[in-house]
């Protein structure tokens, strides 16, 4: 659905995009991650035909952004990071405005608007003024707007930015629902945990360069590989049993344990396992055999944040 090849964009001396090549298939939810100024918005603007690239090609729905802008506009829905709204329109008029802009016939508009409002849970606000809506509702209205013409591809730039926790959860549910409907979503966000939950693939970009593009599981695997070489287990021990140092010595003799770190003061034991699939119960058995009294036993979950931090340097442009 979306393909870019060696996409390059300069703003003066600043390289906003440096030979960006990526591919997003139909029905994918692509999470686009990167620090501020990395080039996410520029990429989205090029894909939505708002900016022309200096070099390289970008195709959306099979159309080249340079030559088939009109065709692309019909098949995409772009939601910018900051949604500007017309302050003198109601929600219904706002959606009618864009339905009309997309050439939807008048008689069909009411039904379509009713449906998208229902999907975005804004039916109650149909005749409210747009600028009287809360930020969360305005963001949902933005999503409703991009759905009016039933596009195949949705480009959502920071859809959850500035939203409170509840609105974020609602927005995430909405995006998951859209993914279920078979839309191809390209979502940029700073809230990596959310992207991790709903994305089928992610791209990590920094300084205009795409550092990683692929499935989420691969990204986790990379994060694991570069961080701990395998699973990490954190064990909290009760004060009455053996000390963590004692148990550590016993554990390090096992070939499945890469490294163990004991903290007697906090009574914790961190165990890094070697790569590969290991059953964790051998650890429990060993600790109990060493007279250790387990208070908690927790495998450390690798998050998207870890992958992001490992793959980016954090340098700002």
């Amino acid at each position: 659905m979306i393909e870019t090849s060696n996409l390059t964009k300069h703003f003066g001396s600043l390289v906003a995009l440096d030979s960006l090549t990526l591919s997003i298939g139909p029905g994918e939810v692509f999470g686009f991650i990167g620090p501020n100024g990395a080039g996410k918005t520029t990429t989205m603007r090029i894909l939505s035909c708002l900016t022309r690239p200096d070099a390289g090609t970008a195709k959306v729905c099979g159309f080249d952004t340079r030559t088939h802008g009109d065709d692309i506009r019909k098949c995409i829905g772009y939601m910018p990071d900051f949604l500007g709204v017309y302050d003198d329109l109601t929600v219904d008029e706002y959606l009618q405005f864009f339905a009309s802009a997309y050439g939807i016939a008048r008689r069909a508009r009411a039904t379509i608007i009713g449906q998208v409002l229902e999907l975005t849970d804004l039916t109650q606000k149909r005749h409210s003024l747009v600028d009287g809506l809360s930020r969360g509702m305005q963001q949902r209205l933005g999503v409703a707007r991009v759905l009016v013409h039933d596009p195949k591809v949705l480009l959502l730039d920071e859809p959850a930015s500035g939203l409170d926790p509840r609105a974020r959860i609602e927005m995430r549910s909405l995006l998951i629902e859209l993914a279920r409907m078979g839309k191809t979503l390209m979502v940029s966000s700073h809230i990596l945990s959310e992207l991790g939950e709903m994305s089928t693939s992610i791209g990590i970009i920094e300084r205009g360069k795409l550092l990683y593009a692929g499935s989420v599981t691969d990204a986790f695997a990379r994060a694991k590989t570069s961080a701990t070489q395998g699973d990490r287990i954190v064990v909290k021990l009760a004060t009455s049993g053996a000390t963590p140092s004692t148990i550590k010595q016993a554990l390090e003799t096992d070939h499945r344990v890469l490294k163990a770190t004991a903290n007697d003061e906090q009574r914790t034991l961190t165990v890094d396992l070697t790569t590969g699939e290991h059953e964790h119960h051998f650890l429990l058995e060993r600790i109990i055999a060493c007279q250790g009294r387990i208070e908690s036993f927790q495998p450390e979950v690798v998050k998207l944040e870890d992958a992001f931090l490992r793959l980016t340097t954090g340098a700002l442009q």
């Binding site: 939505s48 708002l50 995409i76 772009y78 910018p80 500007g84 709204v85 017309y86 802009a101 997309y102």
Partner: peptide, 15 residues
């Protein structure tokens, strides 16, 4: 429209 950040949205429509 540019200052109100509505121009981008308008330009992504087939208008």
């Amino acid at each position: 429209e540019r200052e109100g950040r509505t121009l981008d949205v308008l330009l992504t429509t087939p208008l």
